[in-house]
Design a protein around this nucleic acid. Structure first.
Lengths: 243, 243
DNA sequence: AAAACAAACGTAACAATGACGTTTATAATT
DNA sequence: AATTATAAACGTCATTGTTACGTTTGTTTT
């Protein structure tokens, strides 16, 4: 018998974290493990997510989910797509009873991604098996979360070319090479350091600080910061049509 | 008494249509009018939309909604955002009864936009008061549809700069000036015709036909077509970082 | 034949990018 | 204290893409 389905809405969060030390762009995933009668039913990783409380906005839900997992608030957040295929049954065995009728629970998820620094997240007291994985070396993933991650990553690749969101992944003070390393990690390309350096230094919103790197055993690099104020002020749409 | 809300999912469609004759970018909206005891309760326009059938994908729903309104299929379609504030009560007076408990129906909508030609839509037999409105001269809008339209338009403005979606709004055969007029309509800017012309003509995927305009009382313009095949083949990501 | 119109052409100035050699500042090593 | 390794920083040149604008060409209307 084919059961009717009722709709449910959740939010899933793709949490990107950059580890500046290892120059690795990572994803925060949650371990899922279920066994019954010595048989392993589920053994994989999933995104963090939760259903939408009735009085929350979708953004509220995403913010809450991130906070519960990492303790962090005020991180860069972007809603990038809704996934709602009819076969998205989060718990296929579960049946909901309404008015003596049985329903499957069909879950549509609104997917967000976050950009933050791995060093800002403390996983030591974490009880749900959360762990970081490099985006290019992910474990087995549950549900359709592989696809969700893929689409989030594509969106990130595109957006980082035209908007200064890259600085959400970096500490407040960074070197030019930090930025280059990050672009190379995200895009999987190599960039000429001399040209990239000149390009960034000439931007008015990339501000040289009175500080240099400390604790390095070579010439310490100049530290810079990104000024969102200046960026926003000087940024007028130039409408470059590049089709 | 504050009722609990239950969740519902719908799809709303922002239908952009370009009228090449009047050079106007339009939106297809539906008249909403309700009165009771000679009192006008609702008198405005809304987007077309419908709730998601349980066995449909979200894309299916959008396709169905467009077909029911215009008869058209295979038009350019893009899911651009989900809107799900808790105060989105589509029919505030309506109450749903489940297990002898009363619920408000909270509707989350997955918003799509379509790009097509007004001339492809036949509204003469239409019964639901659908009509075209220039994007810059919209009537009073119901629900939060003004915001949804605004965000769709922003997305379109951005996307048309980097992807050749503009040709979805034009007939198969067009002049260079047609393309320029459309860009000027969408972006609200003026473009130097000579440079724009050269730029486009030099693209390998803008193909000159063996035809010229007919029925014009001046020098007939060369007709062109857009080759998606060539575009896709020659388009390799160049990763231009332009922050 | 002349006027009107818009497509099409040419060229110069400028800005952005990319490739690559050279110089400079610092820390570790000897 | 001198040397060396390293990477930041600088300079130059070629190429490409964009913008501005004067000029020419082809067609239709009068």
């Amino acid at each position: 018998m084919m059961l009717e389905k009722i709709l449910n809405i959740s939010v899933d969060c793709v949490v990107f974290g950059y580890d500046i030390t290892s120059k690795s762009l990572n994803l925060l995933l949650i371990k899922r493990y279920l066994e019954s009668n010595n048989e392993v039913l589920v053994d994989d990783y999933v995104l963090t997510g939760y259903h939408v409380y009735t009085h929350e906005t979708l953004d509220d839900t995403a913010t809450r989910v991130l906070k519960e997992l990492t303790g962090l608030t005020n991180q860069y957040k972007k809603q990038f797509k809704a996934f709602g295929n009819p076969d998205r049954l989060m718990r296929p065995k579960d049946i909901i009873w309404i008015e003596n009728e049985a329903f499957h629970l069909r879950t549509t998820t609104i997917a967000y991604y976050f950009l933050l620094k791995t060093e800002d997240v403390d996983l030591t007291n974490n009880t749900n098996g959360a762990a970081w994985f490099p985006v290019n070396d992910l474990p087995e993933l549950g549900f359709d979360h592989k696809q969700i991650i893929q689409e989030a990553y594509e969106d990130l690749k595109e957006k980082c070319l035209s908007e200064p969101i890259i600085f959400k992944l970096l500490p407040d003070k960074f070197t030019i090479n930090d930025v280059q390393d990050l672009y190379e990690s995200i895009l999987g390309i190599e960039i000429d350091n001399r040209n990239f350096r000149r390009k960034l230094i000439n931007k008015k919103y990339i501000i040289a600080l009175d500080e240099k790197q400390v604790g390095v055993s070579k010439k310490p690099a100049q530290l810079y910061m990104f000024s969102k104020d200046i960026y926003d002020k000087m940024f007028q749409k130039n409408y470059l049509i590049s089709i």
